Simulated assay, not measured.
Amino acid sequence: MNISKNDSLLIGNWLAYNPKELKVATRKYQLQKKIFKYNPNNKVDEIFINDDKFNVLKYNDTIDGEAVENEFEEYFTNTEKLYEKNSSIDELTSDFVSNLSKADIFILRNSIFARHGFAFRDKQLRMYFELFDWYMSVFGDVKDELTEIEKKNIELLLRYEQNAEEYYDTFGR
């Protein structure tokens, strides 16, 4: 690896310890220096799906007069309501939060921490927030950086998250 004087680009090559055993034994990389800056306006506009959490629904149907049992996998994912509010700027209300899915609440709450550069240990959260070019995983604790609106919203979201439905049924709540 090397970085030229007054440059913000780290350039390097990687060679495997035992290159004959691997299909790809060398790699070239470039890392651009990024500076973290908190921005409460950063948007969350991607779908969150937790592949590790799903519910298998079984239902009976009749096809051509014959009874058939079907299965449907329902994943822990957000709804469109997630995109209506920014939990770092908008003061959330009980009316709004009470109509959210558990995944909506989960992402709204964790988006506050992501905007502050929190380094998530949870694999699904880390992978989700890495979809956003604004996310930078740099801090292990951001509690002292939270605004008053964010603190209020976290408290409200936590109250509802405990009792929210994890999955929507096919016909809504």
Rank of each mutant, 00 (worst) to 15 (best):
D95F: 12
Q124W: 11
W14A: 10
D45F: 13
L15I: 06
L92Q: 00
R121F: 15
G117P: 12
D64G: 06
Y38H: 04
I11K: 13
S137A: 12
M127H: 15
S111D: 07
A119T: 15
V68W: 02
Y135F: 08
G65M: 00
A119Y: 15
E130C: 10
L131S: 13
D61G: 07
S137N: 05
F132P: 02
P19S: 01
F113L: 13
G12K: 04
R115I: 10
L82I: 00
K53I: 13
P19V: 00
D64M: 14
T77S: 08
S137K: 07
L82Y: 01
E84Y: 05
N39S: 09
L125I: 11
Y75D: 01
G117K: 12
L9E: 03
E66Q: 06
K43S: 14
N39I: 11
F106N: 01
I47L: 14
E69G: 04
I35M: 10
K43D: 05
I107C: 03
R121A: 11
F48C: 03
L108W: 11
L92C: 03
L100C: 05
E91N: 13
N55W: 15
N6D: 14
G65Y: 00
A16D: 06
E66C: 07
D133W: 11
I11R: 10
F72Q: 06
E73R: 01
K5T: 11
F132W: 05
L108M: 15
K81L: 06
A16K: 04
L22P: 00
W134Y: 07
D90W: 04
F36A: 04
H116N: 12
E84Q: 08
S87H: 00
A67C: 06
S101V: 08
K23H: 11
F48T: 01
F106H: 06
N70G: 08
F72G: 02
I112T: 05
A16L: 05
I11A: 09
N13I: 12
Y128L: 08
N6V: 09
N99L: 15
T77H: 01
K58W: 12
I107E: 01
I105G: 01
L9Y: 08
L92N: 00
I11E: 03
L100I: 01
N99E: 12
G65W: 00
L10Y: 06
T62M: 12
F72M: 08
Y29N: 01
K20S: 11
D7G: 12
M127A: 15
I112P: 04
V44E: 01
N39Q: 14
V97A: 06
E74Q: 09
E74V: 11
D90L: 10
F129V: 02
N110I: 13
Y29D: 04
F113G: 06
F120P: 05
L22V: 03
F76C: 01
S87G: 01
N110W: 04
V44T: 03
Y83E: 04
S4H: 13
N99V: 13
D122I: 13
S94N: 03
L15E: 02
K81V: 03
S4P: 08
